[in-house]
Design a protein around this nucleic acid. Structure first.
Lengths: 229, 229
DNA sequence: TATCGATGTTTGTTATAACAAACAACAAGA
DNA sequence: TCTTGTTGTTTGTTATAACAAACATCGATA
């Protein structure tokens, strides 16, 4: 077997896993309208599989609180009400603040430089008005910070919170980033981490979350629903 | 239809839901040995249903991080390693501390009295050496506190964390409660809530969690696994 | 015209069978 | 005796069909 090409491990990922990932990314990208109901057979036809793996994926997303249970047991995309958003924000400030704190106490020069590089990429994408990829880079940046905390359970819970807020966050990102002229919380977070200042990293992270929450709150109608600006 | 007995809404709960609840309670009660693998067909036979609803329940528990994925995609009961326990403790102090804080700022006299009543019941059960029901009352007490915060998302995440720590917590509860002679953190939490002192409620809640963590840590062997005392 | 009831359709739920991968047991050959 | 190949079993995965509940449609009757 000498001279062979390096072979990768073959891993047949289950169809339910693929369906889960597809739905997850769609939710994170805000490609499902809040309030719309997802039917198993429709999704199954779209994915080209049977209802079994689709039901598996949907069932898990419901268990994670990412999808809600409609009137007949149907899965519906939740439209985030303003008080639910306040709850998510509360938990996010606690958890992401703590994660940023831990990241600052653990990160070295190498990790800080990596974060700074990501910041540059984000700025470039904003200048190019490419908000779709900004949404992705923005997410990657935050989770890079939280990964530095080396507490996988924490990262997992945070990811779940982002999934819950996903449909709304992506809704307003284009307008929101344009309103952020002066204060760049992300740069401040990276600075704090580079200096090993955990308390500051926590403070700036919490401020970043609260400011986004305040913006979303300003868009809420009298019924508490958040709509595009 | 006059003079009829009040009829309750008939709700056929899906079998997958029942299986989920059964597994959940078994995990919380520590009735599964850490490290043991759960096979779908065996569980299905035990519950008297087909593998479909069982798979549904197991799949959800895996997604929640309560069960782990074994070598061949099988579900195994995680044996909590000491560093994973440290991570859970970190998140628990943040979240349950915040929940206790919110509870203290919202609770009135009626709610405080309710908590005090629960404390009395717990003390009586300890005197009777009935640790199985103490485990249940203890859980109810804590979640009564967190329910007062009126942040369902927060309660849900905390419940998930308890589920993860369940197999280990229930393992040591009998011995642990006997070591607690003087300091009764639970009474201190209720006092703080009754006085509306959020900061103190948070502090005592965190201390309660950290002390349990320290006890568990003292039981860990050189491999990091926690075994019964 | 409006209301009520029957009927067909949609949709989540469940059992079952077929499938594939991995493990276990065992026998044959070096 | 040790290794190797084969066979049978276990187990997660997936498709399919049957089922039940709810909804929609439509026609008949008052």
């Amino acid at each position: 077997m000498a001279g062979e090409v390096a072979l990768r491990r073959i891993e047949r990922e289950p169809l339910g896993e693929l369906a889960h990932t597809q739905l997850r990314d769609a939710l994170l990208g805000g490609r499902f309208a809040p309030g719309s109901t997802l039917t198993l057979r429709h999704l199954a036809e779209t994915f080209g599989v049977s209802v079994t793996p689709v039901r598996d994926a949907v069932s898990r997303l419901v268990a994670l609180g990412v999808l809600e249970l409609g009137p007949r047991g149907a899965a519906v995309v939740p439209d985030v009400k303003i008080d639910a958003l306040a709850h998510i924000t509360m938990v996010r400030t606690e958890l992401e603040g703590r994660a940023a704190f831990e990241a600052a106490t653990r990160a070295g020069r190498r990790e800080s430089a990596n974060l700074a590089t990501q910041l540059d990429a984000m700025r470039a994408v904003i200048r190019a008005q490419d908000f779709a990829t900004y949404l992705d880079l923005h997410r990657r940046f935050h989770f890079s910070v939280y990964a530095l905390a080396e507490v996988p359970i924490l990262s997992g819970i945070i990811e779940n919170l982002w999934l819950r807020a996903g449909p709304v966050l992506s809704l307003v990102v284009p307008d929101y980033v344009l309103t952020l002229k002066g204060t760049d919380r992300h740069a401040a977070i990276v600075d704090a981490i580079a200096r090993g200042d955990g308390a500051l990293a926590r403070k700036e992270t919490a401020a970043d979350i609260v400011e986004a929450d305040a913006y979303l709150r300003s868009l809420a109608g009298p019924d508490g629903r958040i709509r595009r600006a």
